[in-house]
């Protein structure tokens, strides 16, 4: 692998990893809320998140371009064509799948765990944490699924990142780009690396699930 290729691979992992971290900051509280509380409309909210799992990346891309472009509402931030824009886009993109998987992981935890933690002296927050810790396998699976979705998506990265060399070029955009340029060999190499990452993470997830 050439140095440039390694750089693109690392950047992809970095960007999608950051997107996952950000996404977790709101997905964890949302999922704890949805998973631990019973209220009217809860199922509707969950099914909305489920419906958004398949949200087309290009649709999200175009919305974000409209928002980040100089002509858009957030134009003055100068975010268009930066890695930050891709991170924001991917963080939003993986929110539905993360919320959906985290919520069901939390739901599947024995409901008495929360009470148990409380009777042992836990505060409300600590009790939630105990639930999350019981759901840790599901949480890791959700994280892996979200990361795979982020690192494998093309629409957002291409539209808000524009595949700038040495800056916003990630694996998927380079695959598309090299294909268009007739550099199929590079395209195929990159596709293999991407598949290797996604497959090995999925494999890891499966090992966790079985254990």
């Amino acid at each position: 692998m050439s140095e440039q290729l390694i750089e693109v691979v690392l950047r992809s992992i970095w960007i999608s990893g950051a997107a996952l971290l950000f996404s977790l900051t709101w997905c964890l509280p949302i999922s704890l809320f949805l998973g631990l509380r019973n209220f009217r409309g809860r199922n509707i909210i969950i099914s909305i998140f489920n419906a958004f799992i398949g949200f087309p990346t290009v649709a999200l891309g175009i919305i974000l371009v409209a928002l980040f472009s100089n002509a858009g509402a957030l134009g003055s931030l100068g975010l268009l064509y930066t890695p930050t824009a891709i991170i924001i886009g991917q963080a939003l993109l993986v929110t539905p799948i993360l919320v959906s998987l985290l919520t069901s992981a939390i739901e599947s935890v024995d409901p008495s765990i929360r009470d148990l933690a409380k009777t042992l002296g836990a505060s409300d927050g600590q009790a939630k944490l105990a639930v999350l810790s019981e759901a840790r396998k599901g949480t890791i699976l959700a994280g892996i699924a979200a990361f795979n979705r982020a690192i494998g998506e093309l629409g957002v990265a291409l539209m808000v990142g524009a595949s700038l060399r040495g800056y916003t070029r990630v694996m998927t955009t380079q695959i598309a780009l090299e294909y268009n340029r007739g550099e199929w060999e590079l395209s195929v190499q990159l596709a293999i690396v991407l598949l290797a990452i996604v497959f090995s993470l999925t494999l890891l997830a499966n090992m966790l699930r079985r254990d």
């Binding site: 970095w14 990893g17 950051a18 971290l21 950000f22 900051t25 964890l28 890695p83 930050t84 991170i87």
Partner: peptide, 12 residues
């Protein structure tokens, strides 16, 4: 998580 995310963005 926020700090890690922000530092990741800042670094890149």
């Amino acid at each position: 998580l926020v700090i890690a995310g922000v530092s990741a963005v800042a670094a890149i």
